[in-house]
Design a binder for these strands. Structure first.
Lengths: 335, 335
DNA sequence: TTGAAAGCGCTAACAT
DNA sequence: ATGTTAGCGCTTTCAA
């Protein structure tokens, strides 16, 4: 393996100069840089990240902690983050918790990340106080995506508002019995969105004078299967809701399925709206409140990289806009 | 930052012994190991992967090169691989090409990976001869998933057979005008599955005496949108096919959509079958040839780790079984 | 603009 | 079972 030393010998210069030339630092004459680059190429020089990391304390690697890569939403954020990291020459270390508490424990509790990454991106997880403490002690930039964590750098949408938009859309269509399918407001993969969305739903309903009814609120675990189960329950009782607001498109898709199973037509018999604008949403004709998923990944990555370079940077809370996308699963209430 | 040296000083032993104790090597008395562990914990010792990597030449990191994480199929494989890597204490470096030729170039051409990872997993990509050459010169275990590359360690399904199963299912239902939606057999994100599946389709048709008709073969680019476009075309002509076999579930979902747009009922007017058993397949009632996606990731990861530890290991070609899953998008031909 | 030299934190070969 | 001793390949003062 040819090292910086071989190149130095080849161009008859010190390794220090070669290192500087290779990294594009200033204070190297153009002629020298040219000779170094040429020699490096000719000798097939490949830098050693381990050696650079050991010497500089920087790894040019960012950890991304994700609840489940198999969920389109998370994968899209990862993709966004990867793009900007790659552009800037950073590598992405993926930690997929996949609903596994021990995986979560391993990533947060052991100081696994300490000397391994320059920054951390946490997706849609609400770290516990203890976990936050460990993240803080990493002494590295951390950005949290999709959760509201005051004092931390975050990138998210206004979940309360998004839920409000969805609920209001149904109200505007004349619906009054509006069910809500959400998710546990705490647990292994908890984040702050579920509670904010639930609150947005309740608030908006209350403004109409209609008090939220507990029997209209169900847990769909933010999965298609969960949404299916929840909607089955909601729709099979007597006095069923005329509309369902699911806090995620996947749950909404489950709800569509439940309606179909029960012989209910959408939107004639029941309207359904979700949040996300999932890649499959348009194929289900799903009305939804779209959020810029991919973009959240890009912004978060940009943010940690800025923290890494800017001398005095301080945590920022970015809130990205959402937009109501009306398709064909919501319609005027039939009287 | 406390290092191995601090622990050595604390327990009054050499760094070599501490290193051995920490790594669980044999040749360390139980008493010593205990004291070292206790001291390490007490001092808040965190190992430095860079230092270990530099000294040992091993990074305990595996690169996973994926066409697009946002596609469920790839994400599921990544998840499978991540599980076994994590169990064994390896980290996963994600390289997402996302249809970007320059990203592909960057990963393969520059020797980015050389001193960075211990092994490489390549998903559903057919490396060019030049790329294969570079992979080979990494001198590291490489496993290719979803492509048929003789001489290399691979994990995949029998694509020819899977396509045959799907086609035969349609034939068994009485269909004769069976269209095929596949994907380019070369390009930036090419792999060997498209051609094998096309061949399986053609072969099976030929056995019935029906020569494959070029006008029944379309390109759906392995995406929902592509499948939609292709099926629109196929279904709007005169003498339209009575069944469509899409080489992936996503394209099949697009085909379902096209049928719906054109006012055709599935399966009464047209049968549709896919390959994969995508997580959304059951919600579309899609008949498909299921493949063990997650498992392919696990097997591939297990394979490279074995290559890393076994003294004399040689590349193996693992073929995982597929299974016809009949749902409600295929039915007997109506005469 | 360049060089000398120390050292980042660990592993591994060789001793004992 | 434990210690000694070289590095691994790079970055980073400090000097020139």
């Amino acid at each position: 393996m040819t090292s910086i030393k071989d190149v130095a010998r080849d161009v008859e210069m010190s390794t220090a100069t070669v290192s500087r030339a290779l990294r594009g630092l200033q204070g190297v004459s153009e002629e020298t840089r040219g000779r170094v680059m040429e020699s490096a190429r000719r000798l097939g020089y490949v830098p050693s990240p381990s050696a650079a990391g050991l010497a500089s304390g920087l790894t040019r690697t960012v950890a991304v902690i994700v609840p489940r890569v198999t969920q389109w939403f998370f994968a899209a954020i990862v993709q966004g983050a990867e793009e900007v990291l790659r552009e800037r020459g950073y590598d992405l270390l993926l930690y997929n918790l996949a609903g596994d508490a021990s995986a979560r424990h391993r990533v947060f509790e052991t100081n696994l990340l300490t000397k391994r990454v320059d920054a951390v991106l946490v997706l849609s997880l609400k770290p516990s106080p203890d976990e936050l403490d460990r993240l803080l002690r990493l002494g590295r930039p951390v950005t949290i995506i999709g959760a509201d964590m005051p004092g931390w750098a975050t990138v998210r949408i206004d979940d309360h508002e998004a839920a409000s938009t969805a609920t209001q859309h149904l109200l505007d269509l004349g619906h009054r019995r509006i069910a809500y399918i959400g998710g546990a407001t705490e647990g292994v993969l908890d984040f702050t969105a579920p509670s904010a969305r639930l609150a947005g739903y309740r608030c908006t309903l209350e403004r109409t004078g209609a008090p939220p009814a507990p029997e209209l609120e169900a847990d769909g675990a933010f999965t298609v299967a969960g949404g299916l189960r929840a909607a089955r329950e909601l729709l099979s009782g007597t006095d069923r809701p005329t509309a369902i607001f699911a806090a995620s498109d996947e749950m909404a898709i489950g709800a569509l399925r439940a309606a179909q199973e029960l012989g209910l037509r959408v939107p004639e018999d029941v309207s359904v709206i979700g949040i996300d604008d999932h890649e499959m949403a348009s194929y289900f004709d799903l009305t939804t409140v779209a959020q810029p998923v991919h973009e959240q990944g890009r912004v978060a990555a940009t943010q940690v990289l800025a923290a890494l370079t800017d001398d005095h940077w301080h945590p920022e809370q970015v809130i990205l806009p959402t937009e109501l996308v009306v398709r064909r699963t919501t319609a005027q209430l039939r009287t």
